[in-house]
Amino acid sequence: MSDPVPNPARRPVPNPRGGGLVSAVTAPAPPPDTAPDPAASSRAPRTRRALRPAGLLLGLVLLAAAFALSLAVGAKGIPLDQVWSGLFTPSGTENDAIVRDLRLPRTLIGVAVGAALGLGGAVMQTLTRNPLADPGLLGVNAGASAAVVTAIGVLGITSFTGYLWFALAGAAVAATAVHALGGGRWATPVRLALAGTAVNAALFGYVNGLSLWHLSTLDEMRYWSVGTLAKRDVSLLLTVAPLLTAGALLAFALARPLGAIALGEDHALALGTRVRRVRVLSVVAITLLCGSATAVCGPIAFIGLMIPHAARAFCGPDPRWLMPYCAVFAPVLLLVSDVIGRVVVPPSEIEVGTVTAFLGGLLFIHLVRQRKVAQL
């Protein structure tokens, strides 16, 4: 009988009970061709960085297409050549009036509001280091809603221009209250989230109570609270344009320090970032952006959640790229959602806030069902 072939996976080890050596089974060494390739592991980030400008250019092309689609599609379809002539060489026809007086203001407001909500979402998610955070977490939507329902039910103000400033003031007061309850200068992302949840619950309870008490308030509030681009005059956009511009400039100025904070506060402090000041300025930027957008169109949900989360998959977590991506792609989503709402149940419309809530709900369910949500 021949000697048994030795098994390379078995090796002698000391017997813990004494008495010599025993045999133990070890895992075989992996074949040489399965070893990780460092070059391949670093190739993906380099490819992503190289494609960032191309993705931003693609976003601008999609934004132009969504802009044209918003002008052409509606209860009455208008060919693109007539849209062009209605914008630049109007002849006084019905189509020219529809394009210039109805759809152009609606589209411009959609671009501005979408960019504001996308930027606000990017700042919020980077600040809290939570990819599922929404600008409404700071109480912006709840504060604006509480102020508007007070203006309508208590003061009798019913015009959009009249309660525009109430919405802005309510958003600012609510965001300030959340920041103070979250610790003020020593606020942390977790405490901000808890404070925002509490303030949102209290303010929405107040809104529901006052709306049920005054039925006329309920009728006015119901139309505003759904979130819509319809029947909004461009003068509202001009009124809040300085606030939107200031919020956008502040958000882009905070991109680099927010990128340091995304690595952790200890790393940010080591890099010389003034964490407390950056956090306060971030809350100001979110309030200016989302408060102004909410004041013009009402609360539009999930834009600030969907766009940063999707953009991060293409440009990475760096806020210096994430914010431009969100400022470009968020208006695309908002305008396309508005167009979908116009054509689903003709001749009626579904408000854009309802469409974005449906799309965002589907995305949120998908994210919740994932085993692990990627962190910033």
Score class of each variant (00 low, 15 high):
196 G>K: 01
69 L>K: 00
160 F>I: 12
323 M>D: 01
113 V>P: 01
100 R>C: 02
142 A>P: 03
189 P>C: 08
308 P>H: 08
146 A>C: 11
105 P>M: 06
64 A>K: 03
95 N>I: 13
100 R>Q: 08
183 G>D: 09
161 T>W: 07
350 I>N: 11
80 L>R: 04
222 R>M: 10
206 Y>A: 02
92 G>T: 08
20 G>K: 06
275 V>T: 03
30 P>K: 13
80 L>W: 14
269 L>A: 12
180 A>I: 12
253 A>V: 12
283 V>T: 15
366 H>F: 15
154 V>T: 15
80 L>K: 13
122 A>Q: 07
132 L>S: 01
36 P>Q: 06
242 P>L: 05
128 T>Q: 05
198 A>G: 11
327 A>K: 01
171 A>C: 07
2 S>L: 14
78 I>W: 08
249 L>Y: 02
2 S>E: 07
96 D>W: 10
87 L>G: 13
72 A>R: 00
250 L>P: 05
120 G>A: 06
349 E>S: 14
200 N>P: 07
34 T>A: 09
75 A>E: 04
75 A>N: 06
301 A>P: 10
372 K>Y: 12
339 V>L: 14
313 A>V: 08
38 P>H: 09
84 W>E: 03
236 L>D: 15
167 A>K: 14
127 L>W: 01
174 A>L: 13
71 L>P: 04
171 A>P: 12
231 K>N: 15
293 A>Y: 05
359 L>F: 15
52 R>P: 01
151 A>Y: 06
192 L>Y: 02
89 T>Q: 11
135 P>F: 04
270 A>D: 13
297 C>Y: 00
19 G>P: 08
213 W>K: 14
322 L>V: 11
182 G>D: 09
88 F>D: 09
271 L>H: 10
160 F>V: 09
187 A>Y: 13
226 V>E: 10
75 A>C: 04
17 R>G: 14
147 A>D: 06
10 R>N: 07
255 A>N: 06
287 T>A: 04
112 A>I: 10
244 L>G: 11
247 G>H: 01
285 A>W: 03
261 I>A: 03
315 C>W: 10
186 W>A: 15
